[in-house]
Amino acid sequence: MRIRAVVSATLASVGILVAGWQSGAHVANTASAVGTTAGTTGSGTTGAGPSGSVGSSAPSSGTSGTTGSSSSTGAAAKADGTFAGDVVQTRFGPVQVQVTVSGGAISDVTALQLTDDGGRSVQISNYAAPLLRAEVLQAQSANVQTISGATVTSDAYLTSLQAALDAAHI
């Protein structure tokens, strides 16, 4: 369970960083802070849903700030762009996040650096975050040309969509 604890603590740090950035503490290139408050508004659209698991809690709190800020943007000057937060040392290692702002609202939050369970720093360019079903690239079966699925037996496979597609194409 140590892994879960570390992940939880590390991701919580990301959440704190996001909140810190949103409050203007880490804005490097702009004179005025974006007029958003830390993501305190409703958990909105990107919550982890029923899973509620440790690994997914922080990113959802980060992105929930996104939905919150879009409606709560104040009168302060809006600075669009991508901003990297400070590298913050935690007892698990350095943590850094990057925030993309458009129209004065945070449109994306990316972890640039997290720590693994050994306390080593890992560079993160591509991080799997929780999504709702509506948020994944939707596929209408008629618009795909092939199907990927975990299939092992040919019987199960033959009942799958791939077989139907194959039949339709022959």
Partner: peptide
């Protein structure tokens, strides 16, 4: 690009995503 659908494991007759 080729569009590849990903089977929904909860209902294997539908797709959950495309790539």
């Amino acid at each position: 690009a080729w569009q590849a659908g990903v089977v929904d494991p909860q209902d294997r007759t539908t797709l959950i995503a495309a790539y």
